[in-house]
């Protein structure tokens, strides 16, 4: 049981990882730890990103030009690297979001139909 769950976990995470990150920087710029914390909190602990999973992904998204990272220095705060969504990223987020929603709805219909 535990083995199956880990595989499912990993597969789901792989497919939705980009979507998660893009959506979290949609409204405001965030730094890496912020993003990881939000994901863990909002998923109720189901989805967790540790450092080797998060930062390489952030750097990949940055290379593709979907997010942009900048060292932000605020008064009374340490210098942090914050990421925000770019216009290209915004387009990709919209497409991935609609794609994901369609996928989820389809799965739900199949899975839910058996119960009814």
């Amino acid at each position: 049981m535990r083995y199956t769950r880990r595989i499912l976990d990993r597969e789901l995470k792989k497919g939705s990882a980009e979507l998660l990150i893009l959506s979290l920087v949609e409204t405001r710029a965030r730094h890496g730890y912020d993003i990881a914390k939000l994901i863990e909190r909002r998923s109720g602990g189901t989805v967790r990103f540790n450092i080797p999973s998060l930062y390489p992904l952030l750097y990949r998204l940055e290379k593709r030009g979907w997010i942009q990272g900048r060292w932000i220095e605020r008064p009374n705060e340490r210098r942090r690297r914050c990421y925000r969504l770019t216009p290209a990223g915004r387009r990709v987020l919209a497409e991935q979001r609609s794609g994901w929603q369609a996928f989820v709805a389809a799965i739900n219909r199949i899975v839910g139909a058996e119960r009814a």
Binding site: N50, P52, P56, Y59, R60
Partner: peptide, 20 residues
């Protein structure tokens, strides 16, 4: 430190990104 995971995983994970 546990968040860093093991040696190889971190190196490999970053390596895949940085080497591209």
């Amino acid at each position: 430190r546990a968040a860093l995971d093991t040696n190889e995983v971190l190196t490999r994970a970053f390596g895949q990104t940085e080497r591209a």
